[in-house]
Every structure is written in C-alpha cells, then in structure tokens.
Simulated assay, not measured.
Amino acid sequence: MSRPAVEFWFEFASTYSYLSVMRIEKAAATAGVEVQWRPFLLGPVFLALGWNDSPFNIYPPKGRYMWRDLERLAAKEGLPFRHPSRFPRNGLLAARVALVGAQEGWVAPFARAVMTANFAEDREITDETVIAGILGDMGLAAAGVIARAQEDANKRALRVQTELAAELGLFGAPSFRVGDELFWGNDRLDDALAWACRP
C-alpha cells in the first residue's frame, strides 16, 4: 500500500517557502507522508492577478510585518535568517535545476541549500556560479546538471508546471495539495500532513 502524499508547491524567492522547505522533510517523515516537490514561479501567477511585484513590496505595511514575522518564525525553528539585500530575487534558474532534482531524487537538499543561500547568507541565487557551487558541494556534476536544466524540454516543463499552478487555483507559496484539497502558507503545513493521513 502506497504512503499518503502531499504536493509541495514552492518558490525560491518566497520568504515563507524558505521556512517550509527547511522543515517539510522531517515533518513529513514523522507523519509518514511522501513529499512531491513542485517548484514553480510566482511571477506569472502574480501577473495574472494584476500584480507586477511581490505583494510584500506593493503593500509596505504588509512587507514590514512579513519581515518581522519571518525573523520570529526563523528563530522559533532555529533557522538562520538574514534580510536579503534584494527582494524578490529571480528564482528561475534554481527552479529549473530543482525540476531536474525532483526527477533525479536530490531536490530536497538542493532546495534547502538554495534557500539558505538566499535567506540566510544573502547570496545571489540568480548567479549561475552560486547554483553551480551548491551542486558541486552536493557532489553533483554542476555543468551537466545546469545543461540539463537549460534544455528546452525542461524549460517547457517548468512553464507547464507554473501554468498548472494557476489552473489549480494557487495564488501564493508555499502551497500544499492533498488530492483536490488546497492548503496555503507555511502555517498550514501540519494541517496538510494531517489531512493526508486522515482515515
């Protein structure tokens, strides 16, 4: 009998995705739930909603609250945090590489390393040398992985996955899906896992 599963939709530029990426594997293992990693891009989703930037930038009071909230939550989880000098950073290359990682079985450690680079070390995850360094630290052949990530078929797969996110009604990240049930936000991770395990 297969284990229950949760789809984990995340974005490398997303602050609250940082928290979920760092804790989902342990939480899911404890719950006995399989994680299906779904990297996607929030930019096209936001544009479809009429936003040309992160809502945390569009609405400054919301942004100020979010950064303080993130500091509190990171401290609670024992995670390092440094306010990025640029927000949001473009996560396109990282998402393409993560899609390859999801197929090859190393997406989780890669996602954690990229999120750490962005939200704990204030490094430019848009920079191919940063991504290559992360892959190298993981013992992967960085040039080959990045070449596969930049192939037309993989680029198209990420576009399709992002379009699917919009079709499914996702409007932010992180989001979790269990069947047709949608849970939005880092604070709904445990609820999603519980729903996956319900009788």
Rank of each mutant, 00 (worst) to 15 (best):
W9R: 05
W9C: 01
F10T: 02
E11Y: 05
E11W: 07
A13G: 02
S14N: 10
S14R: 02
T15R: 08
Y16H: 12
Y16A: 11
S17R: 05
S17T: 11
L19G: 13
S20V: 04
V21L: 04
I24T: 06
A27Y: 07
A27C: 03
A28Q: 05
T30P: 10
G32V: 02
V33A: 12
V33N: 15
E34Q: 09
V35C: 03
V35A: 08
V35Q: 00
V35L: 07
Q36T: 13
Q36H: 10
Q36I: 15
W37A: 01
W37N: 02
P39G: 09
P39H: 04
P39I: 01
P39Y: 02
L41V: 07
L42H: 12
V45Q: 04
L47N: 09
L47D: 15
L47R: 14
A48G: 13
G50H: 08
W51V: 04
W51M: 11
N52V: 06
N52D: 03
S54C: 03
F56A: 12
F56H: 13
N57M: 04
N57R: 08
I58A: 09
P61W: 06
P61T: 01
P61M: 04
P61I: 06
K62R: 13
R64Y: 11
Y65V: 13
M66I: 06
R68W: 13
D69R: 07
E71F: 02
E71Q: 12
R72L: 15
A75N: 14
A75P: 10
G78I: 05
G78W: 14
L79F: 12
L79G: 07
L79P: 11
F81S: 11
R82Y: 05
P84H: 12
P84M: 07
R86Y: 09
R86Q: 11
R89H: 07
N90G: 14
N90V: 09
N90D: 13
A94W: 09
A94H: 08
A95Y: 00
A95D: 06
A95K: 01
L99C: 14
V100I: 13
G101V: 00
G101Y: 00
G101F: 01
Q103P: 02
E104M: 11
G105N: 13
W106Y: 02
A108T: 08
A108N: 01
P109G: 07
F110K: 09
A111M: 05
A113Y: 00
T116W: 05
F119I: 00
F119P: 02
F119M: 00
A120E: 06
A120M: 06
D122A: 10
R123M: 07
R123P: 12
T126N: 11
T126Q: 15
D127W: 11
D127C: 11
E128G: 08
E128T: 09
E128C: 02
V130N: 10
I131P: 03
I131K: 04
I131V: 12
A132G: 13
L135K: 01
D137F: 15
M138R: 08
G139D: 11
G139F: 01
G139K: 01
L140F: 14
A141L: 04
A142Y: 08
A143V: 05
A143Y: 00
G144I: 01
G144S: 15
V145F: 06
V145L: 11
I146F: 08
I146M: 06
I146L: 04
A147R: 11
A147S: 15
A147Y: 10
A147C: 14
R148K: 13
A149N: 08
A149H: 06
A149M: 10
A149L: 07
Q150W: 15
Q150G: 15
Q150T: 15
E151I: 12
E151F: 12
A153F: 08
